[in-house]
């Protein structure tokens, strides 16, 4: 089974693909902070999802991205796909 997708992976990909908003600290406890509060709108999440798909060689459902309102939600969705793909 491929390595699990972690918060550190997500933070790196967010930084590469969308940068960080002024006044937002991604190193704070952000697991349950809504993406909108972190300054990421739907297009930033689309870009983030595309980068995750390329790097982990998976295909996320559109709804998986749309429904993931927080880092924890997105990490869980990605890990579900990694598990499914490996099964």
């Amino acid at each position: 089974m491929p390595a699990a997708f972690t918060l550190d992976d997500l933070k790196r990909i967010l930084l590469e693909g969308a940068g960080t908003e002024e006044g937002v600290d991604l190193d704070a406890d952000i697991l349950d902070t809504p993406f909108t509060d972190l300054g990421y709108e739907s297009l930033a999440l689309l870009e983030t999802g595309g980068r995750i798909e390329r790097e982990w060689d998976i295909t996320l459902d559109d709804s998986a991205l749309a429904d993931a309102a927080t880092p924890r939600g997105l990490i869980d969705a990605v890990n579900t796909h990694i598990g499914t793909a490996a099964a």
């Binding site: 693909g17 940068g19 908003e21």
Partner: peptide
Amino acid sequence: LPSRLLPQ
């Protein structure tokens, strides 16, 4: 500019 604006 903030880093948020650079990739876009």
